[in-house]
C-alpha cells in the first residue's frame, strides 16, 4: 500500500512537471502607434515579460518604459523624461484574467482578457480582445487595444497637442514557453 501511495505521488509530481502550470514570454513585443495629421509616431519594446497561470486562467505583463525604442531618438528621451516619467514610474504592468480560457483547446481561440493596466502610476480597468494560439507546447497571444493618454494623467503641452494622438493604439504579441520554477 505504501509503495502504491509513493507511486501515485511520483506520478502526480512528475505529471505536474510535464504539464507545466505556468507559461512565460520573455521577449514579448509591444508596439505603440500615435497617428495625427501632423506626425505619425511609432515605438517598439521587444523585451516585454508576460506569464500565464493555466490553472486559474490568470495573466500578468510587465514592461520597462525605458525599453521602448522610437524611430526618432529624441522622442525616446522626451517619452521617458516628459511624458511617462520613467525615473519615477519605470514599469507598466497588467494583471488580469483570461475569461473562459481553455488551455488544452488546439488551434486558435479568441478570448476577452479583463484586468488592470497600470502606467504612470495610474490603474485603469481594461477589457482586451486577444487571440490565443496553442502550438507545440507553447502559446501565442496577440491583439491590440487603445489607451487614452489622458486616463493615465500624462500631460501633453497645448503646443504639441497636434503632434501626439489623444488615443494611442497598442499592439501586443507574446510567445509563451513552459516556465520552470
Amino acid at each position: 500500500m505504501n509503495k502504491f501511495i509513493i507511486l501515485v505521488y511520483f506520478i502526480l509530481v512528475t505529471g505536474q512537471q510535464l504539464v507545466a502550470q505556468k507559461y512565460i514570454a520573455r521577449q514579448g513585443r509591444i508596439a505603440l502607434f500615435s497617428y495625427t495629421p501632423v506626425e505619425n509616431i511609432k515605438a517598439e519594446n521587444n523585451q516585454v515579460l508576460s506569464i500565464i497561470d493555466l490553472s486559474k486562467g490568470r495573466i500578468a505583463v510587465s514592461m520597462l518604459m525605458h525599453a521602448f525604442i522610437f524611430e526618432k531618438a529624441l522622442m525616446r528621451e522626451h517619452f521617458n523624461e516628459s511624458y511617462v516619467e520613467s525615473d519615477i514610474y519605470p514599469k507598466a504592468t497588467f494583471e488580469g484574467e483570461i475569461i473562459d480560457f481553455e488551455p488544452l483547446l488546439a488551434g486558435e481561440q479568441t478570448r476577452i482578457i479583463k484586468g488592470n493596466f497600470t502606467m504612470h502610476g495610474v490603474s485603469q480597468e481594461l477589457e482586451i480582445k486577444a487571440k490565443i494560439n496553442y502550438v507545440d507546447d507553447g502559446y501565442q497571444l496577440s491583439g491590440n487595444f487603445e489607451a487614452i493618454v489622458d486616463d493615465y494623467h500624462i500631460k501633453i503641452p497645448p503646443l504639441l497637442a497636434g503632434n501626439i494622438a489623444k488615443v494611442i493604439s497598442v499592439d501586443f504579441k507574446f510567445e509563451y514557453e513552459p516556465y520552470q520554477e
Binding site: 505556468k22 506569464i51 490553472s55 500578468a60 510587465s62 494583471e95 516556465y179 520554477e181
Partner: peptide
C-alpha cells in the same frame, strides 16, 4: 509551490 507566488512577483524576479 505552484500557487504561492503572485504572477507579477515572478515577472519582477525574471526582469534582467
Amino acid at each position: 509551490p505552484a500557487s504561492a507566488q503572485d504572477l507579477l512577483q515572478i515577472l519582477e524576479e525574471e526582469q534582467p
